[in-house]
Simulated scan of single mutants.
Amino acid sequence: MSEVVTALVTMGLVVAAGWLIQARGWLPHGSREILATVCFSIASPCLLLATVAHADLGTLASRGAAVTWGTSLALAGVLVVIARWGMRLPAGRATITALSGSYVNAGNLGLPLAVYLFGDALAVVPTMLVQLLVMAPVAFGVLGRAADATPLPIAASRVRDDGDAPVRKGAVASAILNPLTLATLAGLVLALLPWSIPEAALEPFSLVGAAAPPLALLTLGMSLAKDVRMADAPVGPGEDGGMGAGLAGSRGLAAPLGLAIAARAVVHPALTWLVGSLAGLEGTALTMVVAMAALPTAQNVVVYANRYRCSVDVASRACVATTALCGPVLVVVSAVA
C-alpha cells in the first residue's frame, strides 16, 4: 500500500507541476504541444520498442492480456447499448459516451503508472493495443456515418492520441498508423527474431524512452489546465452532438456523464477484478490489470469529440472528473486486488 501511495503522490506532484506551468504561462505559447509531440512521437515509442523487444511474448498472450481485452470490449459494448437504446441517445452522442466510459488514458497516465508502480512499461501494452487497433477505428466508423456528427475537414482538425500529438492521416489511420502502435509492433517483430538483440543496440531507445513517463505526466497536467476551462465553458452550437433543445443543458448532460463516470471509476475496475479473479489471476498480475482498468477517461476522447463536433460536453467533463477520481480509485484497487 505504501508503495502505491508513494507512486501516486509522486505522479500527482508532477501532474500538478504541469498544471501550474500551463495555468501560469511560465513556458512560451505552444510549449504544451511541443512537449506532447516529443513525448508521443519520440520518447514513448522508444520506451515501448525497447521494452517489447526484450519482453517475454507470453506476457502479451497471457490471461491478463485476455482479461484486459475482454473486459474493455465488453464494457464498451454494454455502454453503447445503454446509451443508444436505453437512454435513446443519437449514435454520435452514444458513441462518445461509451468511449468516455471505456477508453482510458493509457499514454499520459497508464505508461508512467506502469513504470513507477510496476517497473515495467509492458503492463500498459495490452490496453493500448485494444484501444488503438479495435475500439478507436470502430468508433470513428460510427461517428463518421452518424447523422448527428459533422466532421471537420482533415486539414482543420488535428486528430491526436493520448499525448495530443498531431496525426496527418485520416481518423481511422491515425488510430492504427501512429508512433505508439508502430513502435509496439516493431518491438514485437524484434522479439520474434530467432536471435537476441544486443543490449547495446537498444540502449539508445531506452535512454530516450526514460524521458517518456515524466514528460507524459507534465503534459497531462498542462492539458488538464486547458480541459478544465473547456469543461466549464458553455456548450456551443453543434457541440452537443446535434441533440437538439430536448437534450441541451444539464438535463441532457447528467445521464450520459453519470454513466461514463460510473463506468470509468467503478464498473470497469470492479469488472476486471471479478473476471481476473475468476481467470486465476492473483497478486501483481491481478493488480496490474485492475490498475489499468481504473485509469481515467483518455484525453483523446475529448479530441475525437472536438474532431466530430459531437458531445464535447460529455467527453471533457468525464475526462476531468475521472482524472480527479483516479487517485482514490487506485488506492482502493491496491488495497483490494
Score class of each variant (00 low, 15 high):
residue 3 E to A: 14
residue 9 V to I: 15
residue 17 A to N: 00
residue 17 A to Y: 00
residue 24 R to D: 01
residue 25 G to P: 08
residue 29 H to D: 15
residue 30 G to N: 08
residue 35 L to A: 14
residue 38 V to K: 01
residue 39 C to S: 15
residue 42 I to A: 11
residue 43 A to T: 11
residue 44 S to Y: 09
residue 48 L to D: 04
residue 49 L to A: 08
residue 50 A to G: 11
residue 54 H to D: 12
residue 62 S to V: 12
residue 69 W to M: 11
residue 71 T to C: 12
residue 79 L to V: 09
residue 80 V to N: 02
residue 82 I to H: 02
residue 82 I to T: 06
residue 83 A to Q: 07
residue 86 G to L: 10
residue 87 M to T: 08
residue 88 R to P: 06
residue 89 L to F: 05
residue 94 A to R: 02
residue 99 L to T: 04
residue 105 N to M: 01
residue 105 N to W: 00
residue 110 G to D: 06
residue 117 L to W: 13
residue 119 G to Y: 05
residue 120 D to T: 07
residue 122 L to F: 03
residue 122 L to D: 02
residue 128 M to R: 01
residue 129 L to S: 11
residue 129 L to C: 09
residue 130 V to I: 15
residue 134 V to C: 09
residue 142 V to C: 01
residue 143 L to D: 04
residue 144 G to E: 05
residue 146 A to H: 07
residue 146 A to D: 05
residue 146 A to N: 04
residue 151 P to V: 15
residue 154 I to L: 15
residue 155 A to H: 12
residue 158 R to F: 09
residue 159 V to A: 08
residue 166 P to G: 07
residue 171 A to Y: 13
residue 171 A to M: 12
residue 176 I to T: 01
residue 176 I to A: 09
residue 176 I to F: 04
residue 181 T to P: 00
residue 182 L to P: 06
residue 184 T to C: 03
residue 192 L to F: 10
residue 194 P to R: 15
residue 202 L to A: 06
residue 202 L to T: 13
residue 202 L to M: 08
residue 203 E to M: 11
residue 206 S to Y: 00
residue 207 L to E: 09
residue 208 V to T: 06
residue 212 A to P: 10
residue 219 T to F: 04
residue 225 A to W: 01
residue 225 A to L: 02
residue 226 K to S: 13
residue 227 D to E: 08
residue 227 D to C: 07
residue 229 R to N: 07
residue 229 R to W: 00
residue 241 G to N: 13
residue 241 G to Y: 11
residue 243 M to Y: 05
residue 244 G to T: 12
residue 247 L to W: 14
residue 248 A to E: 15
residue 253 L to A: 04
residue 254 A to Y: 04
residue 264 R to E: 10
residue 274 L to A: 14
residue 277 S to N: 02
residue 281 L to G: 05
residue 285 A to C: 05
residue 286 L to Q: 07
residue 289 V to S: 05
residue 289 V to H: 07
residue 294 A to I: 13
residue 295 L to T: 09
residue 297 T to F: 09
residue 301 V to I: 11
residue 305 A to M: 10
residue 305 A to V: 10
residue 306 N to Q: 15
residue 312 V to Q: 10
residue 314 V to M: 03
residue 316 S to V: 14
residue 320 V to H: 05
residue 328 P to M: 11
